[in-house]
C-alpha cells in the first residue's frame, strides 16, 4: 500500500515537472512575440513593464504604405514562381530516377545535401562573383533569387516527392499501367501525378513559407533592387523600431495563416479517402 501511494506521489510530481518544462518553453517561445506585439501597439513605452498608452498608429501607417504591399507582392511572386518552377522540373526528374534509374537517385541525394554544407553568406558571395558579369549577369534581378531559392528548397521537394513515390509504390503502379496499355508519359500523368500531388502540396507550402522569410540571399544578391518583405522589414528597422514591430506582427499573422493552410492540406486526401469505414466481407 505504501509503495503504491509513493508511486502515485512520484507520478503526480513527475506530471508537475512536465507541465513546468512546457510552460517555460512556451514562455521562451512566445515572450519575444508578445513583446513585439506590445511594442507595435505602444504609443509610449519608457520605464514600465507594460506600455503607458496604446495606439494603432503604426499599423495604420503600415497599411497605408504602398511599399509594404509592393514588397509583399514581390515576395509572393518570387515564392510562387520558384515553387512552381521547382515542382515542374523536379517531379519528373525524381520520378524518372526513382522508377528507371534507381542508381542515379544516390547522386541526386548527394547533390541535394550540398546546399546544407555551405553557409548562405559563403554561397552568396560565390554567386555574386559568378553572376555579376559574363554571359549570365543576373545579379540584382529577380532571376538570381529564383535560381538560388530553387536550390534551397530542392531538398524539401525531393524528400516529399520521393516519400510519396515510395508510399504509393510508384514502380508497381507504372508497370501495371504499362501492361494495361498506357505509354510511360500517360502512366506518369494519369497514375503517378494525381497520387503524389497531395504529399507534394505540403512540401510546396513549407517551401513557400521558407522563401517568404528568407533574408540573407535577397539582401546580398538583390538588395534594394527587388525589395522583398524581408528587405522592407530591414529598412523599416532602420527608421523606426515600432513600425518594424508592426511589420513583424503582420508578417507573423500571414505566416500563421499559411501554416494553418499547410496543416489543413496536410490532412487532405483525394476523394473517397474520407470514408474511413473499411468494408470487410471476408
Amino acid at each position: 500500500m505504501k509503495t503504491v501511494a509513493a508511486n502515485g506521489k512520484r507520478k503526480a510530481g513527475g506530471k508537475r515537472w512536465h507541465v513546468a518544462v512546457i510552460v517555460v518553453l512556451l514562455i521562451y517561445l512566445f515572450l519575444p512575440i508578445v513583446g513585439t506585439l506590445l511594442f507595435s501597439l505602444a504609443k509610449e513605452w519608457q520605464d514600465e513593464i507594460f506600455p503607458n498608452s496604446y495606439t494603432l498608429e503604426w499599423y495604420a501607417q503600415l497599411l497605408a504604405d504602398m511599399r509594404f504591399y509592393e514588397a509583399i507582392g514581390r515576395t509572393v511572386l518570387v515564392s510562387v514562381l520558384t515553387v512552381a518552377i521547382t515542382l515542374t522540373i523536379m517531379i519528373p526528374v525524381i520520378f524518372v530516377l526513382h522508377v528507371y534509374f534507381p542508381n542515379g537517385e544516390k547522386l541526386l541525394q548527394i547533390s541535394i545535401m550540398l546546399p546544407f554544407a555551405f553557409p548562405p553568406v559563403v554561397s552568396a558571395i560565390g554567386l555574386i562573383k559568378i553572376y555579376s558579369s559574363g554571359p549570365l549577369a543576373i545579379t540584382g534581378t529577380v532571376w538570381i533569387l529564383i535560381a538560388v531559392y530553387f536550390v534551397l528548397i530542392q531538398p524539401f521537394i525531393y524528400q516529399s516527392v520521393r516519400n510519396s513515390l515510395n508510399t504509393i509504390n510508384a514502380i508497381d503502379l507504372v508497370e501495371a499501367a504499362e501492361v494495361l496499355g498506357a505509354g510511360k508519359m500517360t502512366a506518369f500523368r494519369k497514375v503517378v501525378l494525381p497520387n503524389i500531388l497531395p504529399g507534394t502540396l505540403v512540401a510546396s507550402l513549407l517551401s513557400f513559407s521558407m522563401i517568404f522569410g528568407e533574408f540573407v540571399m535577397s539582401r546580398m544578391l538583390v538588395g534594394g533592387d527587388y525589395e522583398t518583405i524581408q528587405m522592407f522589414l530591414y529598412n523599416q528597422m532602420k527608421t523606426s523600431g515600432q513600425s518594424a514591430s508592426a511589420v513583424v506582427i503582420t508578417y507573423f499573422l500571414l505566416i500563421l495563416l499559411l501554416s494553418g493552410l499547410v496543416l489543413k492540406l496536410g490532412s487532405w486526401k483525394p476523394r473517397g479517402y474520407k470514408k474511413a469505414a473499411l468494408q470487410e466481407e471476408e
Binding site: D172, V179, L180, G181, G183, P194, N195, P270
Partner: peptide, 22 residues
C-alpha cells in the same frame, strides 16, 4: 515489343491498384 503492345494482362503481388481511381 514494349509492355503495352504485348496484349498480356498482369496481376501483381502488391495489387498495384490505382489509389486515385474507383
Amino acid at each position: 515489343l514494349s509492355p503495352k503492345d504485348r496484349q498480356v494482362g498482369m496481376v501483381f503481388q502488391s495489387y498495384a491498384l490505382f489509389p486515385n481511381m474507383s
